[in-house]
Every structure is written in structure tokens, then in C-alpha cells.
Design a protein around this nucleic acid. Structure first.
Lengths: 161, 161
DNA sequence: CCATTAGTTGACTAAATCGTTCGGGTATAC
DNA sequence: GTATACCCGAACGATTTAGTCAACTAATGG
């Protein structure tokens, strides 16, 4: 399980679709405007989300994206797995990587870690996240994931662990 | 909390120091040879680990690195935080990023996520990891984190989540 | 039918990060 | 004073990130 900003973008966009998808498909242009994510980047992400079966696309005017499943059936882990490719192919028991025939020392650690994080993220659904949102009427901005400019004052954000 | 292979390298190396540091400092050259990590990369990582107070260095012949604290006082989270810079400076309550005065939608999600992962990694100490290792005599290879070659058969590793 | 809307695809880019290599320093033990 | 080992920084190729551009296809509305 890799954790980058890419997954955050995808989750943010999916929440947006979940929130605004009540009446008809949500267009990526609308998501882009609301969440300040580049349209083309969203296209890339939703291409993966669609191929992973998390969203359905409707082409033509009035088209856009719908969640393929109910929002309580889509977990954060699903979204992140769809867009973030797996971190590592080095399976220790395997062939080329671990030389000699020694067993990988950190194998158990990372297996356990991955399992734990995955379990946690699998337990968080889009529905839960939507429910947490303050239901303001119009364009609720989620979060700007863009990196702060280099010269910005660097007070440590408590959540930026 | 960012999760990349960089942190894995650092943890692997720290486990090596914990295991072989019984009698005197451990040289990075030895770690490099045992764990197949580039010496210069180790130097970079241990520079950060030293500045974070996780290891002490001894210069000159017979020198090397010692753990600055007992191995049960150093957590995986400590190591990863030392070498992996924080993923994101976008603190939602903040200035430039979230426009208007809306609160960040995913703020709670990522705070909770970070806390959870951080708590998990904080609970895993080097001592626990060392204890898990099969105590073979000589050079126990931990794990080769290098990416598998492009053409390799892509059977999905169960732990590569 | 046909123009418009909107998804789909692919190539291409700048920047950042990753892992590594190189070349020089500086402190210390022998 | 020389070998050892930490220390520092520059540079590099490969990969990932985030974003742009352009061409294409499908479906709707008039």
C-alpha cells in the first residue's frame, strides 16, 4: 500500500461525485472547478477508476460519471488501489531479489503493515466521508493538495505526518 | 505519513545496526554489504537519522553508528519520519490553499488516517523486529527493495498491496 | 442530419523524488 | 601520517507526479 497525494486526489474527487451525483452524472469539468484539480489529471484518474469498476461513464451531452456502486460499498482502499499502483513487486520468497536462500528480514513487518493499513482503509467508505461533510449548499472545496510554494513559512502542520 | 521504499530502506538498515551493534559501532560499509544498499545512499539516510537523534556516530577507525537509544525505544515511525519528509504542507485551515473560507472536506479523513497509521508504526519497535528475525549466524539478507525488472512476470504478490 | 457536448485515448511536458555514483572533505586510532 | 570511517554536496538516470494538448468517438438536441 503506497500512500501519496495521488490517492488523496482520487478520494477527494470520488467524494465529490458521491456528493453531487444525486441527479444525473457528474461531469469532470464540474469536479475540476469545485475541487481545483486539473481536468486532464482527473481524466487520467477516472480512466483508472472506471477500469477498476468503481465508476460508470455516460457519454454525450448530459453525461459524466456515476458511482458504479453505492457509496457505502466503495472504500478508500478501493480508490487508492485503483489509482496508485502497488508499491513493490519484491516478494521475498521469490526469485531474483533476495539473494542466497535467506528469508527476507522485513517481510513480516511489511506484510503486517500493509495488512493493517489496508484493513483500516477498507473500513472507511465514501458514504462515511460524505456524511462527515458539512452540507453547505454550493461549491464546497475539499482540499488543495498542491504542494506549498518553496518559500512558504514552514510551520509544521499537525496532520502532515 | 508517506509510505515509500525509502522508509523501508531506512528501517532495514536500522534493524541491521540493532542486530550487529552488540560490540562497538556498526560501519555503513558493513550494512551496505549485508543489506545490498548503496553506501552513499546509506550515508544520506544516516545523516538524517543522526540529525534526528536516532543514531550516534563515531568517527575514525573502528567508528561507525550506534543506536542513540535502546532498540525498544525506537519505533518504525521514528525512522520513517526521519528520512521521509512529510507528504504535504497543505493544512486546510490555512492560508493560500483552501480558497474561500470553506473547511477542507478531507481534512478529517486524512487526519484520522495519518493518526491511525502513525499510531500503528509507533507501536512497532526495532527490538520487536529484531526479535522476529531468525537468528542465523552470518549475513542475513533482509530484503531487496529494488524494483523488479520491467519484463518480469507479474504475478500479484499478496503483500504488495 | 449535424453541431454540440462530453467521455476516451495517447503523447508529451516540467517538476519532484528515488536510488546511485563520484569527489572531495574532516576527525580519529594506530 | 596514514588508513579508516564519517561527513558533505553535486550530479545523474529512472520513475512518478501533475498537468497540458490534441485527436477521436459516442450521444443528444434541434
Amino acid at each position: 500500500m503506497r500512500l501519496t497525494t495521488k490517492g488523496r486526489f482520487a478520494v477527494t474527487a470520488m467524494i465529490d461525485v458521491a456528493m453531487y451525483g444525486g441527479n444525473g452524472p457528474v461531469t469532470l469539468a464540474a469536479v475540476s472547478a469545485r475541487q481545483r484539480i486539473s481536468l486532464s489529471y482527473l481524466e487520467q484518474l477516472f480512466g483508472k477508476l472506471r477500469r477498476s469498476g468503481l465508476v460508470d461513464s455516460v457519454r454525450g451531452p448530459g453525461g459524466g460519471y456515476n458511482l458504479a456502486k453505492a457509496s457505502d460499498q466503495i472504500s478508500v482502499a478501493d480508490v487508492i488501489l485503483a489509482v496508485d499502483e502497488p508499491i513493490d513487486a519484491t516478494q521475498c520468497g521469490g526469485r531474483e531479489n533476495c539473494h542466497d536462500d535467506h528469508r527476507c528480514m522485513t517481510h513480516d513487518l511489511w506484510t503486517s503493515l500493509n495488512d493493517h493499513i489496508f484493513a483500516f482503509l477498507s473500513g472507511v467508505t465514501l458514504a462515511q466521508l460524505v456524511r462527515q461533510q458539512p452540507q453547505r449548499g454550493e461549491t464546497t472545496v475539499l482540499q488543495d493538495h498542491r504542494r506549498a510554494p518553496a518559500g512558504a513559512p514552514k510551520e509544521p502542520a499537525p496532520e502532515a505526518v
